[in-house]
Design a protein around this nucleic acid. Sequence first.
DNA 1: ATTAATAGTTAAACGCGCTAAAGTATAAAG
DNA 2: CTTTATACTTTAGCGCGTTTAACTATTAAT
Lengths: 144, 144
Amino acid sequence: MRSFLSQTLHEWMHIVMRHSMRNFILYAKEKNYSVAQLNALYRIHHKGACGISDLGEEMGVTSAAASQLLDKLVQQGLAVRTEDPQDRRNKRVALTEAGERIVQESMAARQSWLDLLAEKLTQSEQEQVNHSLRLLIEKAKTLE
Amino acid sequence: MRSFLSQTLHEWMHIVMRHSMRNFILYAKEKNYSVAQLNALYRIHHKGACGISDLGEEMGVTSAAASQLLDKLVQQGLAVRTEDPQDRRNKRVALTEAGERIVQESMAARQSWLDLLAEKLTQSEQEQVNHSLRLLIEKAKTLE
DNA sequence: ATTAATAGTTAAACGCGCTAAAGTATAAAG
DNA sequence: CTTTATACTTTAGCGCGTTTAACTATTAAT
């Protein structure tokens, strides 16, 4: 059975998704990045230095696919491969500065409507909502 | 300048996206739907009966692309085209029951982690967070 | 009645991301 | 030292979503 809060969270997510998905796809199109590429950037951004297979598994594709996708990112100067000196079979994937910038920029594009939303609340409402979200963020971090 | 609440909203979204995007893509892969198809289903679900060009514009593609994408959805029994009796050049796009079911199902798959999150809060925290989200939902509806 | 405009469909061609399978390089095990 | 395992890359081939351009059907304008 789903709690009343779960219900509300789902409803909120539905709204979030509609706005965010749209902004995301339009951003990708405008900048000529594919959804797969941006998703890969997010994964690398989050996981930090990791192997190609790990990345593929994260994204639900074969390591061959991950390797090829990474090629494009490297070509565009958004990511780099470096060898693991301990075990030279392993590669460590990381974002370049340009790659990090794209992550930030695309998130901003995706979330621009949130700023409009924040403005619609009174000062005290803002404080209350802020407090609640902080709580959620804190708890979410224990879910990883 | 971005408010403290904006900042928190963005941070929350970053977390939401990471979980949700991943679940979304894995669901799509498992069920053999493309991201484009699911996005189209969401758009139709939200906009209700609308024309093919409208749909294309919503998704940022040409009407030809929208028409072709719709073909696949129709083939799979997820959507239907009906003529507008007023102006027979117009078509009205709508989801079938099966289509609606996919929308619900994919949202549920995408959001399963939210239930785990909700459980991590005490009763009074749940009430507080619920109230805040209700506020956001209400305000968001005025943004459409 | 023509002509022009609108909404949608169809066809050809292209790039992308995917997989499977073969290939390369390095490390570990016997 | 040889064999086996691991991590990644390369290649060939496939389906999907996209665009442009041509086409059909319907409505509006002159």
